[in-house]
Nucleic acid binder design. Structure first.
Lengths: 344, 344
DNA sequence: CATAGTTCTGCATAGGTATTCAAGTTTGCT
DNA sequence: AGCAAACTTGAATACCTATGCAGAACTATG
C-alpha cells in the first residue's frame, strides 16, 4: 500500500508549472520558457500556456526560481537608527531617501528589502551572503558610531555595498552635491545683501558630508569677499538642540551676523527658534538657509529656504552603484537645487 | 592559520552545507539541524558544526531554505502613492508607519519587502502568490481611488492581507483609535475654554478614518454642551490647500469659532496658515488641534497640538493581523495620545 | 523526393536545504 | 548480562524552476 504522503498542515497545494504544462498540453520547460518571455517559443504555444496559466491561477514560485537562477532580483536597504531609537526617531530625510531608492529599484525591476537596524549584534543581517539580496544599500543616521565602524569593516569584503554619504574607506558612495549646494547657499545669501555670514556645522562627524558643506560654504563666501565664520556643533547627528546652542554661542560672541547657513534642516530649525526667541526677525535681521529639503522645512514660520537634493536621482545612483549598472561610475554627486522661501 | 580566500573569478563559489558537513565530519542533515537550533542534536556535534561553519564562512542559502520550507519569513508592505507622484509625494505619516511595521516585523524575526506603488497595472505584484512573502500590508494615501478599489478585490481572495485604515470589505484592518483621539481633541479644546468648535474634515473619502474622527469630535463636543460644526473638504487625501479653503469657507460664513479640529495634520497646516493670514492669532483667537503627529507638526509656529497614534503599536498590530498571530483579534485600534503644544 | 537548414519542444538535471524514516549508539533498569 | 528505551545521526528525497543538450517537426532548396 502506498503510504499517502499528505501534507495536512499545508496551505492549498501550490499550482506548479507541471500542472500548467499538462493543461496546456506541453512540457514543463515549455511553460517556463513561455512565461519568462523566451523568444524561442512559438507564439501559438505561448498563447496556450498563458491561457492555461491564467485558468489555473498559476504564479511562478519565486523561491524555486531564485534558487535555480542563483539570484534574487532584490536589494537590501539598511536604515541605521540611533541605538535605542524607535521608528519615530528615524530622520525624515532617510525616509525620503528610502522612497527614492524604492522608486529607482522598481524602475529596474528590483525588489527592496528594508531593515531598520540599531543594535550592533544584528547589523546588516548578511542579506547578501544568505542569498537574500544582490546588494546592500546603507543609509541613515551618522550618529550611530558603532554601526558605521561595523560598516567600514564590511567594506573590506567584496560585497556589493553602497551607502549614502561621503567617501569612507573603499566603498561605493553617493551623496548630495554638497559643494554645489553650499555654494548656492553662499551665493544666495550674498545676493540678498548679507555681508557677515555664519555656518553652523561640524567637522567631527563620522561622515564628511557636513564638513564638505561647511568648507564649501565658507570658501565660496570668502571668494565673494564676504566675512564667513564656522560655529562648530557637537559631532554626530545634528539636531535642533544643537542649532539652538550654536545660536547661543553666536550671540555670546556678539559677532555681527546677517546670514546663516545650517548644514542640515534640523539644525536650521533650532537656529531659527533660538534667533526668534532672542528677538531677531527672520529674514529681516538674519537670513537663514538649511540643507536637505525635508518636508518639515516648509512648515516653519517663515518657511525655511533650503538646498534640496534630487531624491529620485539619489535613489537611481545608489541602485546603479550597488548593481554595478552605473553608466558613469564617477557621477556620485546628486544634483541639488535651492528652494528659496521666506527665511531668506 | 587560514589561507586567505583568493577571488580568482567573479562569483566565489558558494559554500554549501555539504562542505561544512565534510569539514565537521558529519552529514549534511546534521549541519542543517545544528544550525537551525534543532534540539535533537548533541551539544558536542553542534559545537563542531558551528566551528566548521565559521571557518568556512558558511551562511545558509535562504533561496534553497525557503524553497524547502515553503515559506519565506517575509512580509510585503505596499505603500500606495498618488498616481504620478514620486517619492517626495509620499505622506510622512506613511513613512513613519512603515518604520513601525519594520520594527514590529524585526521583533518577530520577519523581513520586510517594501514597494511603492501607484500604477494600477503593477499593483501589489502578487508577492504572496509568487511565494515572496507570507502576507501583505497595505498603507498609504487614500487619494488613489483605483488602488483601493483593486485592493478591495484582492480582499475577496484568501490572501493574508491587512491594511491601515477603517473597515473596508472583509479585510483585516488596523487604524488609530480615531474616536478616542477625536474625543480627546474635543475635550481638550473645551477645557481650554472654547465654546464654538469647528471640525475640518470629510465624509467622502474611500476610507472612513476621517469620517470617524469628525463624527466623534462633533458628538463629543455637543455632549459637552458646546456648539460644533463640520466644514466639509474635498474627499481624497487631505492637503494644505484644502485646509486653507476650509478657512475661507469658515470666514465667509462669518460664524463664530474659537477652536478647530483638523482631521489630519496636513489639513491643520493649511488651516493655521489661512487663519494667520486673515489676522487671527493662534492660540489666542483660535485654538487648533491636528491628527497624526507627523514630524512637521512640531515645526509650525506655534507648534501644532495633535493626536499621535502609537506607531510601534500600530506596526505590531498590523504584523500580527497579517501573520494571524494576534492574541486579540478585536484589538485593532491603536492607542493615541494628545500632544499639547502651542497651537492650543 | 531527399537533404540541409531552421525552428521549436522535451528530457534530464542542478540548485541547496529541511525533513521523514530507519538505523545506529548509548543509557537505564532488572 | 540482557533488553527496552531514549537519544543521535545518516540516507534518501521533495521542494519547483531554469537551462544545456538533443531530438523532432517543419521549411526551403536542389
Amino acid at each position: 500500500m502506498d503510504a499517502p504522503k499528505i501534507d495536512t498542515g499545508r496551505k492549498p497545494a501550490r499550482v506548479t508549472s507541471f500542472e500548467v504544462a499538462e493543461r496546456a498540453g506541453v512540457s514543463q520547460p515549455t511553460v517556463s520558457r513561455a512565461l519568462s518571455g523566451s523568444s524561442v517559443i512559438s507564439e501559438a504555444t505561448r498563447e496556450k500556456v498563458l491561457i492555461a496559466a491564467k485558468e489555473l491561477g498559476y504564479f511562478i514560485d519565486e523561491r524555486a526560481a531564485r534558487l535555480r537562477r542563483g539570484h534574487t532580483g532584490t536589494l537590501a536597504t539598511v536604515v541605521i537608527c540611533k541605538p535605542g531609537g524607535g521608528a519615530r526617531d528615524v530622520n525624515p530625510f532617510s525616509y525620503a531617501l528610502l522612497g527614492g531608492i524604492c522608486a529607482a529599484a522598481a524602475e529596474r525591476g528590483l525588489e527592496v528589502l528594508v531593515s531598520l537596524q540599531s543594535e550592533e549584534d544584528k547589523l546588516f543581517g548578511h542579506f547578501v551572503e544568505r542569498g537574500q539580496a544582490e546588494g546592500l544599500i546603507v543609509i541613515g543616521t551618522t550618529a550611530n558610531r558603532a554601526a558605521w565602524d561595523y560598516f567600514r569593516k564590511v567594506g573590506e569584503t567584496t560585497e556589493p555595498v553602497a551607502y549614502w554619504g561621503s567617501p569612507l574607506g573603499d566603498l561605493d558612495w553617493v551623496s548630495s552635491d554638497n559643494e554645489a549646494g553650499a555654494r548656492l547657499a553662499a551665493e544666495h545669501l550674498v545676493e540678498r545683501g548679507c555681508t557677515n555670514l555664519v555656518c553652523v556645522g561640524s567637522h567631527g562627524s563620522p561622515q564628511r558630508q557636513f564638513a564638505e558643506r561647511a568648507d564649501a560654504f565658507l570658501n565660496r563666501a570668502r571668494e565673494l569677499g564676504v566675512s564667513a565664520d564656522l560655529i562648530e556643533i557637537e559631532p554626530g547627528e545634528a539636531r535642533r538642540e544643537q542649532g539652538r546652542l550654536a545660536v547661543e554661542k553666536l550671540l555670546a560672541s556678539k559677532a555681527e551676523c546677517d546670514g546663516i547657513f545650517a548644514v542640515c534642516d534640523a539644525l536650521a530649525f533650532g537656529v531659527m527658534e533660538a534667533l526668534q526667541d532672542a528677538g531677531n526677525a527672520i529674514p529681516d535681521d538674519v537670513r537663514l538657509v538649511g540643507f536637505d529639503g525635508i518636508p518639515a522645512s516648509e512648515m516653519t514660520q517663515p518657511p525655511l529656504s533650503t538646498i534640496e537634493p534630487d531624491l529620485d536621482q539619489a535613489g537611481r545612483l545608489l541602485v546603479e552603484a550597488v548593481t554595478g549598472a552605473g553608466p558613469h561610475p564617477s557621477v556620485r554627486r546628486v544634483p541639488v537645487r535651492l528652494l528659496t522661501r521666506g527665511s531668506s
